[in-house]
Amino acid sequence: MADRTPAPDTPELRARWGGFAWTPENKKLADWHIAKYPPGRQRSAVMPLLDLAQRQVGAETGTQGWLPLPVIEYVAKYLDMPVIRVLEVASFYFMYNLKPVGKFHVQVCGTTPCMLRGSDDLIATCKKRGMKKGEVSDDGLWTLTEVECMGNCATAPMVQINDDNYEDLTPERLDAILDALARGEQPKTGTQEPGRHTSEPLGGPTTLKEMVHENHDYRSEW
């Protein structure tokens, strides 16, 4: 499990992020999220707002983004709620980074299906490239995190890099993706298995075969 403690509250952190405020576009978005809820229930919007704040920090720092304590306090103030309640949410969900991350946050799933399909090799591949768990690499590009199930078990093993999933990986395929990202290209997302579109069974369907091309009423066959 990743170390989830927030980045320490230092004067440097306060100096860097103490003046955080929404950009005009994000302010519009934040208010749009708040407006989804009845008046007085604005704190229901805490999760989208934290995500928005993380993305804004990411845009400012050229990374995936993270949540410094002053930014968490800003969100709490914006929603008029106690800051401890916001920190509870931010520390609960892994999608909120409490420490700085690199430009590409490589989240390798290590839960059982992915592990059985070779996620250990993927982690080894990442480490061979100089990534360390929970740390930003020296060139500022990479942060490696081992995470729990991301719900792509049918196309295991998988990694999530920032907002995209890459599935059906082998060490070679992962290397190719990371190389492409390092060059500034956008590799194909989703499954990397040739001939596979999404998470359909390899080698064609094994059930509901008549449904492949047209709708089929099975009821008479029961």
Partner: peptide
């Protein structure tokens, strides 16, 4: 509101901000 439960699962910790 000053005491909260941070983190999750086995790592849950009770603390003030």
């Amino acid at each position: 509101d000053e005491i909260g439960a941070l983190y999750r699962g086995e790592d849950t910790q009770i603390t003030t901000y």
